[in-house]
Computed example of a mutant assay.
Amino acid sequence: MAIPDFIRELRATAGHQLLFLPGTSAVVLDDEGRVLLGRRADTGRWALVCGIPEPGEQPAAAVVREVYEETAVRCVPERILLVQSMEPVTYPNQDVCQFVDICFRCRAVGGEARVNDDESLDVGWFSLDALPELDEFALTRIKLALAEGPTWFDPTLPK
């Protein structure tokens, strides 16, 4: 994942300490019910499109921008699937981040899926019965996108 300029500026003074950051992810579905996935350049694994909103950018606008930047597909957010604080991640350079992911179900409205930046090795549409190997992050979000339930929040919240 490319490091946004505003995070580079933060790291200049914060060093490697934990940064708590917003993140967005997208389950993009086409008219045939296929899911849009990208094979990440940093890990080589297939994944949902995800990214970091820029300062002042709304999460829905960020997810639309990220999907287009990475895949050349135009999409429209339909609903929020999940809001979840992720486990902290330590990168090879020792930077530590913890993301709060806001995942959107999106509908593709145009464009042809292709690698559109240096963050992906491959991009493609996959039918639900022919998904490549995916981590739990992606599988959970795809499952929620296919259901008609409410937005998912951590069930351990105080009542």
Rank of each mutant, 00 (worst) to 15 (best):
E133W: 12
I52E: 10
L131C: 03
V49H: 09
T13D: 13
V115F: 07
D129E: 13
V115N: 03
E78A: 10
G44L: 05
A12S: 12
P77C: 07
V123D: 00
P92K: 09
V49W: 08
L82R: 14
A26F: 05
R40L: 15
P77T: 07
T13I: 12
E136N: 13
R79Y: 04
P88T: 02
T13C: 11
A60P: 01
C97A: 15
R105A: 11
D118I: 09
C106F: 08
Q17E: 15
D42A: 02
T90S: 06
A147S: 14
Q58M: 15
L10H: 09
E136M: 12
A12T: 13
L36T: 04
T24A: 12
V28E: 00
W125C: 00
A145C: 05
G111M: 00
G38L: 11
A14S: 14
S85W: 11
A147T: 13
C103V: 05
F20D: 15
L37F: 04
T140A: 06
V109R: 03
D154A: 03
F153V: 12
R39L: 12
R105K: 14
E9M: 10
S120Y: 13
L48I: 08
G44R: 03
E54I: 11
L48C: 04
A47F: 11
E69Y: 08
P150L: 14
I3E: 12
F99W: 04
F137A: 08
R8M: 13
V35I: 02
P77M: 00
T43N: 08
R34C: 07
E32I: 06
